[in-house]
C-alpha cells in the first residue's frame, strides 16, 4: 500500500549518517505526525552511537514519540532506560513524568481492572517526591488526585453492587472504606448518604443518624444531604424516585448499562 518512504528501516540504512542528522530526521518525522518512524530513528541513534550526547537526547525523544503514538509499553521501556543511565540529568524528571503518563493514559473504566491506576499513582508519587520543583510536579499532583478519586469510584461501584442486591452489611463495609481511606475524594458525600440508606434499611437508626450528622456537618449544601435528611426524618418524598417507570428502568439498565 504505497511506500511510506521507510526505506530507513532496513538494517544499516542509517549507519552512514551522523547522530545529529538522524536526530534531526527523527524530529521532522515527529512534526509530520509519523511518531512511530520518529521513535525508530531516536532508538537507532542510541544503538549506532551509544556514546554521543545525541544518544541521551534521542532516548528521551523516543519515549516522548512512543507515548504520543500510544505505544505505551515502548514509551515505558525507553523512559525507564533513560532513568537507569541518566538519573542526574535534568530531563530525568520528564522521563519519570512520561513513565507516569504511560500508565495514567491507560486507566480504564471503573468496571474494569484498576491495576494500571495503582501503577500510575506510584509513578506520579515518584514525580512529586523526587522532582518536587520540576515543571511537571504540579500536573503530577493534579493527575494523582484524579487517579486517587478513580480508585474511590471503584469502591463505590462495588458498594452500590451490594446495596442494590440487598446485601447491606457488605455495602456498609465498602462505603466505610471510602469514607475512611478516600475522604479527600468527591465520593465521600455519596458514600455517607449510601451508609444512611443501608443503616436505615437494616433498622440501625442510631448509626444512620451518625452518618447523617457527619454528612450534614461536612457537606451541608450537597443534594446527598438533602436526600439523607428526607430519609432520616421520613418527611416528604423525593421527586426523582416517584417518577421512575419500569420502561425507563429497562432502558437505563439494558441499553445504557447503568444498573442501579
Amino acid at each position: 500500500c504505497g511506500g511510506r518512504g521507510d526505506g530507513f528501516r532496513e538494517s544499516g540504512a542509517l549507519d552512514t549518517l551522523t547522530p545529529e542528522q538522524i536526530y534531526i530526521q527523527g524530529e521532522s518525522l515527529l512534526e509530520s505526525g509519523r511518531e512511530d518512524d520518529a521513535a525508530f530513528h531516536f532508538t537507532e541513534i542510541e544503538r549506532l552511537y551509544p556514546y554521543s550526547e545525541w544518544a541521551k537526547r534521542g532516548l528521551i525523544m523516543a519515549a516522548f514519540a512512543f507515548h504520543r503514538d500510544g505505544a505505551y509499553e515502548d514509551a515505558r521501556a525507553s523512559a525507564q532506560r533513560y532513568l537507569d543511565f541518566y538519573p542526574a540529568e535534568e530531563d530525568a524528571a520528564y522521563a519519570q513524568y512520561l513513565l507516569a503518563l504511560s500508565y495514567y493514559d491507560q486507566i480504564d473504566d471503573v468496571g474494569r481492572d484498576q491495576g494500571l491506576t495503582f501503577q500510575a499513582l506510584q509513578a506520579l508519587r515518584t514525580v512529586i517526591e523526587v522532582y518536587p520543583d520540576s515543571p511537571y510536579a504540579a500536573d503530577a499532583m493534579a493527575k494523582f488526585d484524579l487517579a486517587f478519586d478513580h480508585l474511590a469510584s471503584k469502591e463505590m461501584e462495588i458498594g452500590r453492587f451490594y446495596i442494590a442486591g440487598g446485601h447491606y452489611t457488605a455495602a456498609v463495609n465498602r462505603f466505610r472504606t471510602v469514607v475512611e481511606d478516600y475522604q479527600t475524594t468527591r465520593h465521600t458525600p455519596e458514600a455517607l448518604y449510601r451508609l444512611v440508606e443501608a443503616y436505615v434499611a437494616l433498622g440501625l437508626n442510631a448509626e444512620a443518624q451518625t452518618a447523617g450528622a457527619i454528612l450534614g456537618t461536612n457537606f451541608p449544601t450537597t443534594s446527598w444531604y438533602r436526600d439523607a435528611y428526607v430519609l432520616l426524618t421520613g418527611r416528604g418524598l423525593r421527586p426523582d424516585v416517584v417518577g421512575e417507570s419500569w420502561l425507563t428502568a429497562i432502558y437505563r439498565q439494558v441499553i445504557r448499562g447503568e444498573w442501579i
Partner: peptide, 22 residues
C-alpha cells in the same frame, strides 16, 4: 478482589458469587 478483567465488567463476574463480602 477481581483482577485481569480488561473487558468484562466487575459486576458480571461478581454476580457469579453466591458468597457476599462479610
Amino acid at each position: 478482589d477481581i483482577e485481569g478483567n480488561a473487558t468484562t465488567l466487575d459486576r458480571v463476574i461478581r454476580a457469579q458469587f453466591r458468597t457476599v463480602e462479610g
